[in-house]
Amino acid sequence: MRTLVLGLGNEYAGDDAVGVLAVRALRGKLAGGADVVESAASGLALLEVFAGYDRAVIADSIRTGRSPAGTIVEVRLADLGLATAPSLHQAGIPELAAVARRLGMGFPDRTRVLAVEVAGPLMFGAPLSKPVAAAVAPLGRRVLEQVQRWASEDSSRGRPAGAGRGPKDTLTRGPGGARCTTTTRSARSSRA
């Protein structure tokens, strides 16, 4: 079973960096347990990143306006819905998952999205706001717990856990299309 830990965000754009910073701190703590990928890319630009993984934890920022800044929320991919993306800039993870599954590129069967509620405005070069900075470590812990939970499920079933390859420093290209074990499953069967 291969696990991806994906931190999304622009580290130069204040609170948007929270996902990237949280997963960066996990490097070394996950050795062999998951691939850690950081990316400032958005939407469909991430298409290939997920191929070949059975499970993924995505760390990102979110703005629902329903919780105070710094709150960690778990989002079900299915709840995000599918939009008519008004711009390539706005095609998000739900669109990406739908396309990847429909085209048989492979998208992890089990996806957890952990996001930190942030407040605007985003400024280039701005530091993280206090409440969001305080959420970086807890977000990392939540990601780690999820990976460990999956690993212990594996070991109780006697399956080898891991990423299948060493940790990656940065996003270069997807891990290749050779292993697309999830491709025949429909989006509906996902437990995301």
Binding site: N10, D16, D60, A83, P86, G92, A115
Partner: peptide
């Protein structure tokens, strides 16, 4: 009318869901 231009709306921000209700 504006989608034809594919305007950049504060791009490089990643907050979920990333699309536009």
């Amino acid at each position: 009318a504006f989608r034809a231009y594919d305007p950049c709306m504060g791009c490089s921000t990643h907050s979920l869901p990333g699309h536009m209700p």
